[in-house]
């Protein structure tokens, strides 16, 4: 039956782009989660929703508008946060509600919710055309290359901005780059997963992976594995059941999280988190 499903071109597109999206969401998400920015993906997704509505309202291709709005609002709010010393959670709340507010106003002005808007809210395998797959793969490859090249610096900044700055790393520039990458990741992912659930792929696989208390590299690999499994299995299961794949993807990610919690409570996860002996 799996092979029957995979024989459809649109499912192949969804699976291929789903794997690529899972890889970047888990990698970008780890940096955000470790910076206590878990909800930033959610806020970016909501601002991207405002961008989609703006695109539809003005007659642009909605995804380009979403990219522009998501990146610009992320950069602007990061700047505002630094300059006016506003806390991260407050900024996230502002970004989240303004994206939705802009979206609602523009959708109302343009005559109400359409099928396009619902597709972006909940994600759709049908949204991913072959051209989209090429775009998604290109975007994901570029993001992964940037993260692989700069990962030691991104990791250092995430660990300690002060120490990273003293070691000569251009912290502000790299912070802006990471935030812009997060914005691009959100918009790239929301075609498949939807605005409402995209941040789940940023957070849940990473929190699950962190329970295994491994090294940074191993944590990223674990998180990627959980993310890819949830996405591929979610798409495959949702199709015959005729349900939105995003919900199933996130439910599977949550199942892995709960399973890991149970295994950890039962002492079944072997971690390296042993208290070091005093040297």
């Amino acid at each position: 039956m799996v092979f029957d499903i995979l024989s459809f071109g649109f499912m192949q597109n969804a699976i291929i782009s789903g794997i690529a999206i899972s890889l970047i969401c888990s990698t970008v998400g780890l940096f955000l989660v470790l910076r206590k920015y878990s909800l930033f993906g959610d806020a970016l997704a909501h601002s991207a929703f405002g961008g989609v509505a703006l695109g539809l309202f003005l007659g642009f291709y909605p995804l380009w508008a979403a990219y522009a709005v998501s990146i610009l609002s992320a950069l602007a709010l990061t700047k505002i946060r630094q300059k006016f010393d506003i806390s991260g959670d407050a900024i996230i709340a502002i970004l989240l509600s303004s994206g939705i507010a802009v979206g609602i106003v523009l959708i109302s002005l343009s005559g109400g919710f359409s099928i396009d808007i619902f597709s972006f809210l909940f994600g759709s395998v049908l949204l991913v055309s072959t051209e989209n797959v090429i775009g998604i793969l290109g975007m994901c490859a570029a993001i992964l290359i940037i993260l692989i090249i700069g990962y030691k610096k991104f990791m250092y900044i995430t660990f300690s901005e002060e120490q990273a700055r003293v070691s000569g790393i251009r912290v502000e520039k790299l912070n802006y780059l990471l935030i812009a990458i997060a914005g691009i990741t959100v918009v790239t992912s929301m075609q498949l997963v939807g605005v409402l659930l995209v941040s789940a792929l940023f957070v849940i696989p990473n929190v699950t992976a962190m329970m295994f208390k491994r090294s940074f590299k191993q944590t990223i690999i674990l998180s990627m594995s959980f993310s890819v499994f949830s996405t591929v299995a979610g798409i495959l299961i949702s199709y015959p059941l005729d349900i939105a794949p995003s919900g199933m993807v996130v439910l599977l990610a949550i199942t892995l999280f709960i399973g890991s919690l149970v295994m950890k409570s039962a002492g079944m996860i072997k971690t390296t988190g042993i208290l070091a002996k005093r040297a």
């Binding site: 990791m155 002060e162 191993q218 944590t219």
Partner: peptide, 24 residues
Amino acid sequence: YVPQKPVVDRNFPATIREVVSMGQ
């Protein structure tokens, strides 16, 4: 630079080797 006793997040997923090579 060695800062004042840094507050290390117990859950930060990095080994000693990774911390020392960060930023290099």
